[in-house]
């Protein structure tokens, strides 16, 4: 099994890479920090005996990240799974960002996943593989905060549907996970309305589901109820939830 994890150096991505290595997947790890990637690759190889390739790539500035990753794979190499737990949010994403900042958020949260999927699709189809996308509970309903981030994450729902509509389950499986708050450096120090989830636990759940069919899940599952409540909230009430 060869699996690529994009955004692997920290947070949920690192935990996914660790869990995959524990289950003996050979890995291609992608992130911006070469030193972090090298450390993770060494650790996973030593602890679990798996082969790990790494690609240091700044997704905010890479014009064609898909081509870079395709070039990093051997010509003959199949790809069984592509996990895209990459993401970036910013403070002041409340209609205060300039064009450059908006472009950076869209590049990481939307352009990069799309470009990578496009480039690697033939390899995944050859292996009858699986693509795992990561949306966000923040995208369930538009708010005055996380404007660009949520827009990009909601666009991934559309990508998920497009892939499922285009390819039969026997050709390609597509999974979309929409996490709530996760206990990573991104949420550290924030006042959150509910406890953040353990990324290692989420990783175990997601990796355990890799062999299953296409699916869309909120993780942890309690966020499905929260999403339903948010969606069902009358507009007049929802509009008042500006905090």
């Amino acid at each position: 099994m060869k699996t690529m994890v994009v955004g692997a150096s920290s947070g949920l991505g690192r935990e996914l890479a660790t869990e995959l290595a524990r289950r003996k997947h050979d890995l291609v790890l992608v992130a911006s920090g070469r030193r972090d990637l090298e450390a993770l690759a060494a650790d996973l190889t030593l602890r679990h005996g798996v082969a790990v390739e790494l690609v240091a790539l700044d997704l905010a500035t890479a014009a064609d990240p898909g081509a870079r990753l395709l070039a990093a794979l051997d010509a003959e190499s199949a790809l069984d799974a592509l996990l895209l737990p990459l993401g970036m949010s910013r403070g002041h994403d409340d209609f205060s960002l300039d064009a450059a900042a908006i472009g950076e958020l869209l590049a990481i949260n939307l352009h990069a996943p799309l470009a990578i999927i496009h480039a690697l699709l033939p390899r995944l189809l050859a292996a009858q593989g699986v693509i795992v996308l990561f949306g966000s509970v923040a995208a369930v309903r538009g708010r005055g905060r996380n404007v660009v981030y949520a827009a990009a994450k909601r666009a991934l729902v559309s990508v998920y549907e497009s892939l499922r509509q285009r390819f039969a389950p026997g050709q390609l499986r597509v999974q979309l996970y929409e996490p709530g708050f996760i206990a990573t450096n991104l949420t550290w120090g924030m006042r959150l309305p509910m406890p953040a989830s353990d990324p290692a636990r989420l990783a175990r759940q997601i990796v355990a589901g890799l062999g299953r069919g296409s699916r869309r899940r909120f993780v942890p599952a309690r966020y499905a109820l929260i999403a339903a409540l948010l969606r069902g909230l009358p507009w007049a009430l929802y509009r008042r939830m500006r905090a």
Partner: peptide
Amino acid sequence: MRGYALGESHLTSFDRQFEALCRVQRPDRY
């Protein structure tokens, strides 16, 4: 800035003789 996001935690020495509300950074990348 998220790069050096700081949280606040009550930290206690193992012997429980000193406790303080501290600013804590949790870097996860070099």
